[in-house]
Structure formats: C-alpha cells, structure tokens
Design a protein around this nucleic acid. Structure first.
Ligand SMILES: [Zn+2]
Ligand SMILES: [Zn+2]
Ligand SMILES: [Zn+2]
Ligand SMILES: [Zn+2]
Lengths: 131, 131
DNA sequence: ACCGAAGGTGAGAACGATTGTCAATCTCAT
DNA sequence: ATGAGATTGACAATCGTTCTCACCTTCGGT
C-alpha cells in the first residue's frame, strides 16, 4: 500500500528542505519553510517546497496536519507506526509507542465486524516547562 | 473553555442546515450541503452554510474533519467525548466509547509530565458489508 | 403589539493556500 | 558523453473559505 513507487531522485532542493524540516521541532507550513530557506540563502521555489513536502509525507518521512484554518503543516517523523504527545504551547513532541492502544483498537474493530482498520491517535497537552 | 458564549439565535437557515446534516450518514462539505438544500428548494446562501457549520462545530453539535485535499467536511455528532469507527467504503460510522484508552492516555501523559491533555482517536476500516 | 439594538443573511468581491503549466535543467543508466 | 525521464521554478489558474456591507430577523423591554 505504498502508492506508486515512482522513482524519486535526490536533489539539492530536497536535501535542503529535509534538513530544515529535521532541524526544527514543531510543525511548519510549506511557506514558513520556504521563507527559512530564503533567508538562509538557499534558493528554492515555493512550488518545489510544496511538492517535496508532499512526497515526504507520502513516503512516511514526515507527518502532515491541518491547522484549524486549513493550512497544511509538516514535521519530520520517523517511519513506522507510532503516536505523538505534543505540547500545545512550545510544540515539544514526544513519540509514543502504545501497544495497549494497538490491542484495544484491534479488538474493538473486530467486535464491530470491521477489518483492515487503521487508526490515528494524537495527544495534545501542556508540558512541564510550559505549565 | 467554551470560547466566546456569543448569543446564538435560531433561524430558518440554521434549522434547515442542521436537519440536512443530521439526515445524512457520512461527512459532508459545506458546498455539498448547500447543493442539497438548493435542490430541495430551501434557499440558503453559501456563506451562511459555512457560518452555520462552523458554529455547530464549535458548539460541539458537529464533527469537523479535513479531507486529504484540505476541504472541511462535517458530520452531525452527539456531544460529549467519544470516538468513531468509520468504514472507508460506505462511510458507516459507529460511535465508540473507550474507557481503556482514556485511562491509557491519562497515564502516558502523566509519565511525560504533560497536563491538560486532550486527545483525538479515530479508527478507519472496512465494515462487514463492504468486505 | 411596537421599537430599537444586536445578531443573522446573502450576493459578490477578495483572499490565500495549493496546484497546474511548461520550458529549462538535472540525474542516471547506458 | 548521451538520451530518457524526473525535477525545478516563475507565474497563472483553481477553488474552498472568508470578508463586506446593506438589508432582514429575532428578542427584550415598553
Ligand atoms: Zn511545552
Ligand atoms: Zn497506533
Ligand atoms: Zn461499509
Ligand atoms: Zn477518548
């Protein structure tokens, strides 16, 4: 279910974008990343930033989210299934592994006759430092 | 934390929108709802549909979601905290109450020093009829 | 029932994030 | 080095959503 395995070539732009994304903690919009690249002297087209981020998202190298006003924001993310506990103030993020939840979802799904069930779970709170 | 308790007046339009939303099972976009109202002879402005749906969402009378291409879609939803198990084919939805998960999230959050933790959890699978 | 204040409505303009276009450029296997 | 095919970028085009603003409704007080 890895979509179209279109060949994906490494380029200067992709590297720069991935680097900036990895360097920052929280979620970033395509435009914010583009601005950062600009000010750091790296010339990359806005459309390219959009395309690269989309590619990273579908390849599992980044998480996507929509802000309440509909803007897509991205965050570097390790591959594999896991969840996040995010601070609503400073954006600090903890990756969580929840076997208990995985078990629970499987059970509940089965009880209702559903199969091939995927799930999304995200925790948003205030971290100790931002209390 | 119930936002601005602005007085909210009942109107013909709001009633119509709420009714159509409640009548349909899955998620609907503002434009789809508007189209339905049009064809059923109920004259309502598109902007009004957007505003009404937003209001319902903030009042907890509807769930909002963003499709992959960023469009906001709404679904009538009972108030109070709960989760959903949705069929990716036909849209059939089961509301789920998961005390086990609630407990788990609280525990994990505490372990990492987070407080006031909210969470979102959604299950998407294929129901028995659509297998 | 009558009135004024404040919320609500709607048509259309304005916005703004995202995507499409397409010629120039780059990567890679041969 | 070379050709095929992927990538890029400046800019136009989309399109969902919000803004404007004059007009309509609801509602509490009289
Ligand atoms: Zn924090
Ligand atoms: Zn999980
Ligand atoms: Zn189904
Ligand atoms: Zn819950």
């Amino acid at each position: 279910m890895t979509a179209a395995p279109t060949t994906r070539r490494p380029t200067r732009q992709r590297a720069a974008i991935a680097e900036v994304l990895a360097a920052s903690a929280g979620f970033q919009s395509a435009q914010e990343l583009h601005a950062q690249l600009q000010s750091s002297g790296t010339r990359v087209g806005l459309a390219t930033v959009y395309r690269a981020l989309q590619a990273m998202a579908t390849d599992g190298e980044a998480d996507v989210r929509r802000t309440d006003d509909g803007e897509a924001v991205y965050r570097a993310c390790s591959e594999g299934h896991h969840h996040h506990l995010v601070c609503r103030v400073c954006g600090r993020t903890v990756e969580i592994d929840g076997p208990a939840v995985e078990r629970w979802t499987a059970q509940v799904s089965a009880e209702h006759g559903f199969s091939d069930v995927d799930h999304t779970l995200e925790l948003v709170g205030t971290c100790a430092d931002c209390r």
